[in-house]
């Protein structure tokens, strides 16, 4: 599957992000562009195409390497490598493209991935809740978002009607159990 979009230019590293619903100011991860050389030190993410080709060197690297997927990438190509990947980065090139949600869901539920899943790109407050439900744990918000305010985006709903990659349960099995 083609590996398009924002890989060609270096993605901006932002200073702040949300990890497990906490504001974290130190962001140590660099998202390397397609042509960018892998530095010796520091945590980096690489795109899927590079990962598939350079897998063995990247696994041997001393510092952590995450794999980055855009919406059109085939997440199943990672399934046998997940034990070697400390973090999967989902690059939301456009927030109206919902494929990354299924990627996260599959990572958690189908491939039982337990590492971190970080979302980057067009990440806005009003999507955080659903992103968390499908299994995302780290959020690099798009520029100009009020981070403090964004934290409230997680708590908007206390009722969940369906299971996903979270503690949500099928509402009908819940009702059955509460009889």
């Amino acid at each position: 599957m083609p590996n398009n979009a924002s890989n060609s230019e270096c993605l901006k590293v932002q200073g702040a992000l949300i990890v497990d619903r906490q504001l974290v100011v130190e962001n140590s991860w660099r998202h390397l562009a397609t042509e960018e050389e892998v530095p010796e030190t520091g945590s980096v993410s690489v795109d899927l195409a590079r990962w598939l080709i350079e897998k063995s060197q990247l696994i041997a690297r001393q510092a952590p390497v995450a794999v980055r997927l855009v919406a059109s990438d085939d997440v199943s190509l990672l399934q046998d490598d997940l034990d070697d990947i400390p973090m999967v980065v989902l690059d939301m090139v456009s927030y109206v493209d919902g494929r990354s949600y299924t990627h996260a869901y599959w990572l958690r539920e189908r491939y039982a991935y337990s590492g971190d899943i970080r979302i980057i790109g067009e990440v806005y407050r009003d999507q955080l809740n659903f992103l968390e439900r499908v299994g995302v744990t780290q959020f690099e918000l798009a520029a100009d978002q009020d981070l403090q305010d964004a934290l409230q985006g997680f708590d908007e709903f206390s009722v969940l009607y369906q299971p996903s990659a979270d503690e949500g349960r099928n509402i009908f099995s819940r009702r059955r159990a509460s009889d």
């Binding site: 919902g98 949600y101 992103l131 709903f157 969940l160 009607y161 369906q162 996903s164 949500g168 009908f172």
Partner: peptide
């Protein structure tokens, strides 16, 4: 039942 299952389904909100 479909209404409830599909309401605010986190994965299928941006089809």
């Amino acid at each position: 039942m479909i209404r409830q299952w599909s309401t605010l389904h986190p994965e299928f909100y941006w089809l």
